[in-house]
Design a protein around this nucleic acid. Structure first.
Length: 493
RNA sequence: GUCGAAUUCGUCUAACGGUUAGGACACAAGGUUUUCAUCCUUGCAAUAGCGGUUCGAUUCCGCUAUUCGAUGCCA
């Protein structure tokens, strides 16, 4: 039988890491097994609906290269794929369950529900609905109907026995039916709950495997019972370990960035995020960690999904991002960093050909120290303009060296640049600077550091001559002259 | 409280019942005759505890502890 899996987000907010992991694993499982990946929107909670959510799902998929075989605007014969467009179906099946004796109307309002909850808490009893409406007499039902209260439909959970299911990852899981609730199937506003809609759709859409996070394990027995009540065969369940924050608790906003859109904004590459997330609760073997999406679609195997929760390690993600940035082409990095340069005011809004060429020239020098795309401007602002923003100045005078001597050294460097900058290789120019250090009887660093500060205004920079060749001879000389001038003034003043 | 699941270096993880328990991130030290970064080398560091089964247990079983999750007219 053809594998059919689905990702079924509810549009209540932006896509987050946990959801992405679920989507990815479903997608990979489908692709690795020649199956179909279905996107279904579970918008059954009208009160929590968030307007930009749908667009965000599409954008997230698009950014990461996850595509669905069936879903909204891509009908595979099982649509519609948006649950709010299927409410009649759910209502029909809910009523069917009432008629078959598997469910019942409940007229208890939220006020009463809250009261019994408080009593249960006070008496340290297990919380839950007390099943008052489960066995109402016909007269009582008539009375309640007449009162005008909109009822909900609740599932009539068996009071005894056990419900068992075989999880593909965790193995056999069984619970006593007595611990199960008479959960709501259809809300008083006519919309189904997750449990009802999910089961009906999974069945109707012929889903073969349900891959979801372990937080769903407690409700799975109820789902199994629902399938049974309908007389349907349940799909196979695969409960994946949860993704946690650094404190070991379910990943959420307070752990920092958790929304996919934030990672995108913060300068992560899609392939880095994807690769990193693929390793959350899954592994290929004992040594390979770097995979392309294409590889993952071939090698992903459900048997290698873990059983224990995984903490989301931002540092390791960062490392992955650095690796992927270093592997990127210069053209792509220019593309990706351009908006950040514009935002920083280093490049004009409508970049000229010269500006683009300039970015392309400096990019190799930025690439290897970049861990996030949006770090590019701060790592390379000194390339722009006549003079650099002097973020460091004191270090232009190395330890145990007189200011006057630094002026001499810089003047000598200036001569080298003036004479040989265009005709000699970087290596030859460097060699001349080493000779200068011998001449002035200082360490090589005492020659390079003043030059570095003069040219870049920072003490941590790429190698000097490549930088100077990007900014050009004229600007380089101007910056050296400026530094000499400033030093002279300091000596005089 | 009740129910469920989980437990290998700080973190992500590997290990047909037989390995000096491996790799990666992080961290530390060193090297790459200029800083930073890259790259390379080395180091640090784990089977939650107690019982069983077995010639042999990280691996199988039980108990305890701890952690997480669920316990909504949320999903």
């Amino acid at each position: 039988m053809k594998v059919r899996v689905r990702y079924a987000p509810s549009p209540t907010g932006y896509q987050h890491i946990g959801g992405l992991r679920t989507a990815l694993f479903n997608f990979l499982y489908a692709k690795a097994n020649g199956g179909d990946f279905i996107l279904r929107i579970e918008d059954t909670d009208q009160t929590r609906y968030f307007d930009g959510a749908l667009e965000d799902i599409y954008e997230t998929f698009n950014w990461l290269g996850i595509s669905y075989d069936e879903g909204p605007e891509k009908d595979g014969g099982f649509g519609p794929y948006i649950q709010s467009q299927r409410t009649e179906l759910y209502q029909k099946y809910a009523k069917q369950l009432v008629e078959s004796g598997h469910a019942y109307y409940c007229y208890c309002d939220s006020g009463r529900l809250e009261r019994i909850k408080k009593i249960q808490e006070a008496n340290k009893m297990a919380p839950g609905y007390d099943r008052r409406c489960r066995d109402l007499s016909p007269e009582e039902v008539e009375e309640l109907k007449a009162s005008g209260i909109q009822p909900v439909i609740r599932f009539k959970a068996p009071l005894e026995g056990k419900t068992v299911f075989e999880d593909e990852i965790l193995g056999r899981i069984e619970v006593e039916n007595s611990t199960l609730q008479d959960f709501v199937l259809l809300k008083s506003d006519g919309f189904p709950t997750y449990h009802l809609a999910n089961i009906i759709d999974d069945h109707m859409m012929q889903i073969t495997h349900v891959l979801r996070a372990q937080e769903w394990i407690p409700s799975t027995p109820s789902h199994v019972l629902l399938y049974k009540a309908f007389g349907w065969e349940p799909p196979k369940f695969c409960h994946m370990p949860m993704v946690m924050g650094e404190d070991g608790k379910k990943l959420s906003k307070r752990h920092g960035a958790t929304q996919v859109i934030e990672f995108r904004k913060n300068g992560y590459l899609p392939e880095a995020l994807l690769n990193f997330i693929s390793l959350l609760g899954w592994s290929y073997n004992d040594k390979d960690e770097f995979f392309t999406m294409e590889q993952l679609q071939k090698i992903f195997d459900i048997k290698r999904i873990n059983t224990s929760p995984a903490i989301f390690d931002y540092k390791k993600l960062m490392h992955f991002n650095g690796v992927y940035i270093r592997q990127s082409s210069i053209e792509r990095l220019v593309d990706l960093t351009l908006p950040h340069y514009i935002e920083a005011g280093l490049v004009s809004k409508e970049p000229t050909a010269e500006e683009m060429a300039f970015l392309k020239k400096l990019m190799p020098l930025v690439q290897e120290r970049l861990e996030l795309i949006n770090q590019a401007p701060e790592f390379s602002d000194f390339f722009f303009g006549e003079l650099p923003p002097y973020k460091t100045w004191e270090m232009i005078v190395p330890k145990n060296v007189e200011k006057a001597k630094v002026v001499e050294i810089l003047s000598d460097i200036r001569k080298v640049v003036e004479a040989d900058f265009d005709v000699k290789e970087d290596k030859d120019l460097e060699q001349q600077l080493y000779e200068l250090s011998k001449k002035h009887e200082v360490k090589a660093g005492a020659v390079f550091m003043p030059l570095r500060i003069a040219i870049t205004g920072i003490n941590k920079s790429p190698e000097m001559f490549p930088v100077m060749h990007v900014i050009g001879k004229e600007v380089s000389l101007k910056r050296i002259d400026n530094a000499i001038e400033k030093l002279k003034q300091e000596i005089a003043g």
